[in-house]
């Protein structure tokens, strides 16, 4: 496992990054900024498709940093609650696997999206 200081440095850096990116991500759902009437209309398929294709890199960056931040946070709590060589290893491996699986899903939703008919 990597050094704790490196993981926590990443935790703080991703945290700072997310303050910006999540604000942006939430602001995309404010109807008046998008010139539509309601919150649900900002989730319309063409709007969402344009957003995914237009900001794909930002969305992927948001997904990866959020996943890292969240999974590292959960890992931290789990390591604190219980101790033991096997438990520690199991938590670390589970965290790594969860990160890879969800990062793959997130990548697929950005890369594999088709234009709405």
């Amino acid at each position: 496992m990597a050094r704790a200081s490196l993981l926590y440095l990443l935790q703080y850096v991703t945290g700072a990054l997310m303050i910006v990116l999540v604000s942006w991500h939430l602001a995309m759902r404010i109807p008046w900024l998008r010139g539509v009437e309601s919150f649900i209309e900002t989730l319309d398929s063409t709007v969402v498709y344009n957003e995914i294709t237009g900001f794909s890199v930002l969305l992927l960056l948001l997904a990866y940093s959020t996943l890292f931040h969240g999974i590292n946070g959960l890992r931290m709590i789990l390591l604190e609650l219980r101790h033991g060589r096997y438990w520690d290893r199991a938590v670390n491996i589970a965290a790594l696997i969860t990160f890879i699986v969800f990062a793959a899903i997130a990548t697929h939703s950005v890369v594999g999206v088709e234009p709405p008919s």
Partner: peptide, 22 residues
């Protein structure tokens, strides 16, 4: 904890357009 559980669900649910269509 709530936010990370939401994150997992959110990633699965936003995968729907790519997986099952619009």
């Amino acid at each position: 904890v709530i936010a990370s559980l939401f994150l997992f669900l959110h990633i699965i649910s936003t995968n729907v357009p790519a997986r099952e269509g619009w």
